[in-house]
Write a protein that binds this DNA or RNA. Structure first.
Length: 507
RNA sequence: UCCUUCUUAGCUCAGCUGGUUAGAGCACAUGACUGUUAAUCAUGGGGUCCUUGGUUCGAGCCCAAGAGAGGGAGCCA
């Protein structure tokens, strides 16, 4: 008999298999033990019957703590009630190592606690599902670009200059000289595109901002394609094809994982070509409620959302009151009382979250009303704009001042840069940012001076314009934001195995 | 950096107007139960109430400072 993985059990119905893995959860009653085994490829319930395996082995199995490692052989049975549709009836059992007092119990835990235990948290079903989806996203990104003949390149991590001159960078000592950890590989990508035509980078990126929000990490992974002979329009066409490809692959390969994550896939099904595209000025009209979408302005929609939140909170409150009355009634069994009590705790937490959300809306309303034309979008503006459509929105032709120095000015739309941001719906914000690059060397020099960047650090970059200058474009994708959006996660920290953020260096 | 909320058992939380020996559930341990899916029953162990200082006859609760965390703003992908 050969070792099989849980994932493949569907093709071994009524056959005997060997499984090796860890104990995710167990329940026992007299002579019968239900153990949920996980082996990395999935989760399956194993039933161990004292009459089958014998008293000694049964006792041994019963003693296993959560996350003990063990192997079994047994018959695969179809059972629609089970996660994955099968269960295994054990014929023999063999322990590898017992585990005691595993800290992550089937109870709810706080984020801080779980982050301290991240090395163990990764084993839980939800984290398992996220990491599987992350893997598919990474693979499908490579697949997309490789199929189109793009060459993957690695940009340096140590750099001598702050590329866009804006963000705070991590400073290190490079043989006595200050060096910075890369915040973007894009300028190097441009150089390589002039050598290979179509390229993409896929590497780590660092930002030293002391941000504590659900959208930020200090270390994250970025994908930056760069294409010679592409203008802004071709860039946008590529972005939407690319995003649709990645989302499509996840939908295709991970229905089970998405259901573990309770992801509403309806929103993902809407990621279809062509995406909504609009110029910055039109987006501003919508944010400022000067223009309605589907008969509603942003302000009306936000006010409706606020009301809906308040209604929801009121209904949860009455739900809690009802359950509390039940407990006070005193007719419940102990089990029912516990269940009701934990339900109440859950509802209270839900209310807390809703209160936080509702608390933000007035500020967002205010910021939408007072939005200053010409400014960059804030987090709330992005949320408001995509909220109007419920699908990804591409905003292009931004005021030059808010975009990086290398963005090309639109000849027919003076003062606007040919940049584009792809905003994901449901509050996930900017997932992709890109645009057509400035080719006029004099203008580039002017911008470098304007942005007060050290000219000598950009000499090599300016060389790219001196030798066979061509129109070219590219974009950058934040991997973790993409994972958060596709998985529908509250927090970006769950999207990467070991997140690094302000105040978090371990584990 | 600013605004805001929080810190009580291994975990999630309750703790009234400042008043006797600080509670619950989960988890854990022992026992009972042959089909469980966070819902069986009984018993048991488990506390630096974040830290420091102050007010008070008396502080988990009030005041001050500090540390850590959550959410938001700014900045960004």
């Amino acid at each position: 008999m050969t070792h099989r993985y849980i994932k493949e059990l569907g093709s071994y119905i009524d056959q005997e298999v060997v499984l090796k893995g860890w104990l995710a959860q167990k329940r026992d009653s007299k002579g019968l033990l239900f153990a949920t085994m996980r082996d990395g490829t999935g989760f399956v319930q194993v039933v161990i019957d004292e009459n089958v395996v014998g008293n000694e082995i049964f006792e041994q199995a019963k003693k296993m703590g959560q996350e003990s490692s063990f192997a079994i052989s047994g018959i695969v049975k179809k059972d629609e009630r089970q996660f994955g549709g099968v269960e295994v009836q054990a014929k023999s059992f063999c322990a590898y190592a017992n585990a005691e007092d595993f800290p992550i119990t089937p109870k709810e835990h706080g984020v801080d606690f779980l982050m301290d235990k991240r090395h163990l948290w990764l084993r839980s079903k939800r984290q398992w599902a996220i990491m599987r989806v992350r893997n598919t996203i990474i693979f499908s990104i490579h697949e997309f670009f490789q199929n189109k003949g793009f060459v993957q390149m690695d940009a340096p991590i140590f750099t001598g200059n702050a590329c866009e001159g804006t963000s705070t960078l991590f400073e290190t000592d490079f043989y006595g000289e200050p060096a910075y950890l890369s915040q973007s590989g894009q300028l190097y990508g441009e150089a390589m595109a002039m050598a290979q035509g179509l390229i993409y980078t896929f590497g780590p990126t660092f930002r030293a901002e002391k941000s504590k929000t659900r959208r930020h990490l200090s270390e994250f992974w970025m994908i930056e394609p760069e294409m010679a002979f592409y203008d802004l329009k071709m860039d946008m066409d590529l972005i939407e094809e690319f995003v649709q490809h990645v989302v499509g692959r996840v939908l295709e390969k991970h229905p089970l994982e998405l259901s573990v994550l309770e992801r509403n896939t309806e929103m993902l099904e809407k990621v279809k070509l062509p995406f909504i595209r609009m110029k910055y000025e039109e987006a501003v009209d919508i944010i400022k409620a000067e223009k309605a979408v589907n008969g509603k302005t942003s302000i009306q929609l936000l006010e409706e959302d606020l009301k809906a939140l308040n209604d929801k909170m009121a209904s949860l409150q009455s739900d809690i009151a009802e359950r509390e009355a039940k407990i006070a009634g005193g007719t419940l069994t102990k089990g029912e009382r516990n269940f009701t009590q934990s339900k109440i705790d859950q509802l209270k937490n839900e209310i807390k979250d809703l209160e936080e959300k509702a608390g933000n809306i007035p500020a967002w309303l205010e910021s939408a009303r007072n939005f200053k034309r010409g400014d960059d979008f804030g987090g709330s503006d992005e949320t408001v704009l995509t909220r109007m459509f419920g699908q990804p929105v591409m905003v292009y032709n931004w005021p030059q001042e808010v975009k990086a120095f290398y963005m090309k000015e639109d000849e027919t739309d003076k003062g606007y840069a040919k940049g584009v941001d792809l905003l994901a719906p449901e509050g996930y914000g900017e997932v992709v940012g890109g645009g057509e690059r400035e080719t006029d060397i004099e203008r580039l020099k002017g911008k470098i001076i304007e942005h007060e960047l050290p000219m000598e650090a950009f000499e090599w970059y300016l060389d790219l314009r001196k030798f066979g200058n061509v129109p070219h474009s590219g974009f950058g994708l934040g991997l973790e934001r993409m994972v958060a959006w596709i998985c529908g996660l509250q927090h970006i920290r769950e999207t990467i195995p070991f997140p690094r953020s302000y105040g978090r260096l371990l584990p």
